[in-house]
Design a protein around this nucleic acid. Sequence first.
DNA 1: CCTACCGATCGGTAGG
DNA 2: CCTACCGATCGGTAGG
Lengths: 192, 192
Amino acid sequence: MRHRILRAATQLFAEKGFSGTSVQAIADAVGIQKPSLLYHFPSKGALRDAAVDAVLDRWGDVVPKVLRAATNGENRFEATLGEVMQFFAADRDRARLLMREILDRPDPMRTRMQETFSPWIGLVTSTIRRGQQEGVIWPDLDPDAWVTNIVALVVTTFATNAVSGALFEADSLERRQREVLRIAHASLFIGG
Amino acid sequence: MRHRILRAATQLFAEKGFSGTSVQAIADAVGIQKPSLLYHFPSKGALRDAAVDAVLDRWGDVVPKVLRAATNGENRFEATLGEVMQFFAADRDRARLLMREILDRPDPMRTRMQETFSPWIGLVTSTIRRGQQEGVIWPDLDPDAWVTNIVALVVTTFATNAVSGALFEADSLERRQREVLRIAHASLFIGG
DNA sequence: CCTACCGATCGGTAGG
DNA sequence: CCTACCGATCGGTAGG
């Protein structure tokens, strides 16, 4: 039951935002009464925290795969960014929930995301710096800012294309995803 | 008075979101009573529409400058993207308001933004296509998706850095802005 | 531009 | 997991 409540809450928070979602609406979606819901989660805020935790915890599950992709083999770049995109493609609520939380509570979310992403970002940026020393990556690239920007681009792409289709005419999620990959690649490696 | 109300509403909508902002809170910020506010704007929704209109109208004011930058002279690329970034840098509420509206009401906002940005996007993409024919821009670049992604990146950068400072460690708005410019440049022109 | 007020809904509790 | 209920606040209106 806890899980069903959390899933309904996550969906509604992603779609309508935290303050646009009432505890009653979540209870209705699950099919129980409001006080029953508040037995499983002591408050609406606790439900929000649990929803964010769930997303960031599942990122923790994927990190090993991403790290393996980032350190191994040939196409380490495509593999790493591919894992990141897959994480958000697998559940459209993730990007929208994170984006809303960053807007609603920037400071606590920055802390939470730093804790979650720091080890992964540290590895990626040090790999980038090695590539710069080897002369295959643009020397004027700012590794931290680059990673932040590319992740921000991925999150925004999925957050704004989560529901219907295109932000602009002739614009689809597929095309934007492909172009994100191309932009990341061309802005990383010398000579594209 | 209308203008003072609209400014307070825009600030609060940007900071707390539409459903996170009460009419009472806006009235308090202005220093008048709630019914007085509702004399100037018939409903909370009308206030929202007016706030979005104001942002998009001011974009309309900047478009001529952007178009001049996009069609003229040497550094047309730097000038065009510079104008876009300046638009969002000039008022931090703009990016947050637009991002929140896209999340809250994707379909109406897509329509509104298409109407506002289409002419400008059409000109930029046709300039890009010309550059592709001339062989100075990556041939596999998707012009529509590229413009959407770069604008999305700019909006996200300002929306998520509007209040305090950095999303991740050692990350500042300045560094992210500089890196956005570099990413856009390197992902556009062959050879960086 | 104000006071006074409306019904509806908010998050949450008591008590079983 | 439910019924019954709490005070506070919601957007908005009446009437001046």
